[in-house]
C-alpha cells in the first residue's frame, strides 16, 4: 500500500532535498576562525537566547510593531510544519484518526489563509512590493498549494496522491530558492546568537563595577 508511485517519488524527492541541504550548508563559505577578542558576555547564552526567547513577540520591534504579520507568519509556519509532518506520515500508508485529521485540516486551512494574506500584503504594500522578487510570489504559491493539498488529503483520502506529488515538488524546490531559509534560519540564529552573545549585547549585559555574572 505505501508503494504507490506518488509515495515513491515523494520519498526520493525528500532524500534528494536533504542531500542538497547538506551540500549547501557544507559549501556555505569560508569557515569562521575562533575569535581572539576577550568575550564580554557568553556566546552560548546568546545562542540559546536566539533560539528561544528571541522568538517571543515582545522581544523584537518587528513583532511588536507588526503583530498581525507576525501572527500570520507564525500560524503559516506552524501549519507548514504540520503539513510536512502529515506528508511524512503519508509515507507509512496508515490513516490518521479522524478527529486528528479534522484538527489538522483546520490548522492547514488557517495557515493557508495566513499565507494568502501575506501574499496579498506583498502585492498591496508598495515598499514590500519593491523589495520582492518574482520568486517570492512563486514560493508563496507553491507552499500554498502544498497546504491546500494537505487540507484536501485530510478531508478526503483520495486526494493523498495529489498531496504527495505537490509535496515532492516542494521538497525538490526548497533548496533552490528562498525556501532554504527553513534551514538557514536556524544556522543564522546560531551565528547571530554567538556573535551578540560574545559581545555582551544579548541576552543581558554585565555592568562594569559589578560582579561579572557566570
Amino acid at each position: 500500500m505505501p508503494l504507490t508511485p506518488s509515495a515513491l517519488v515523494l520519498a526520493a524527492a525528500l532524500a534528494v532535498s536533504a542531500a542538497a541541504f547538506v551540500t549547501l550548508r557544507r559549501r556555505l563559505g569560508r569557515p569562521l576562525p575562533a575569535p581572539f577578542a576577550e568575550p564580554r558576555g557568553s556566546a552560548a547564552a546568546g545562542e540559546r537566547w536566539a533560539l528561544t526567547a528571541a522568538f517571543l513577540p515582545w522581544n523584537k520591534e518587528s513583532s511588536r510593531h507588526h503583530a498581525a504579520s507576525y501572527a500570520a507568519g507564525l500560524l503559516l509556519h506552524t501549519a507548514i510544519a504540520a503539513m510536512v509532518a502529515r506528508l511524512l506520515w503519508s509515507l507509512t500508508g496508515r490513516p490518521l484518526p479522524r478527529p486528528l485529521e479534522l484538527a489538522l485540516a483546520a490548522l492547514l486551512a488557517t495557515g493557508l489563509a495566513c499565507g494568502l494574506a501575506l501574499f496579498a500584503k506583498r502585492l498591496a504594500n508598495p515598499a514590500l512590493r519593491a523589495l520582492s522578487v518574482p520568486e517570492d510570489y512563486a514560493a508563496n504559491l507553491l507552499v500554498g498549494a502544498a497546504l491546500a493539498g494537505g487540507l484536501a488529503a485530510c478531508l478526503d483520502p483520495r486526494a493523498l496522491p495529489a498531496f504527495q506529488w505537490i509535496g515532492a515538488a516542494l521538497a525538490l524546490y526548497a533548496p533552490l530558492g528562498k525556501l532554504r531559509h527553513m534551514v538557514f534560519l536556524v544556522t543564522s540564529r546560531r551565528f547571530w546568537g554567538r556573535f551578540f552573545g560574545r559581545r555582551g549585547v544579548k541576552p543581558a549585559p554585565p555592568v562594569a563595577g559589578e560582579a561579572p555574572r557566570g
Partner: peptide, 20 residues
C-alpha cells in the same frame, strides 16, 4: 565570504519587517 554572512544571505525572506 564567510559562512556566517553566507547563512544570512540565504536566510532573508524579504518579509520587509526590518524596514522601520
Amino acid at each position: 565570504l564567510d559562512e556566517r554572512t553566507a547563512a544570512y544571505l540565504n536566510a532573508c525572506v524579504r518579509c520587509g519587517l526590518c524596514a522601520d
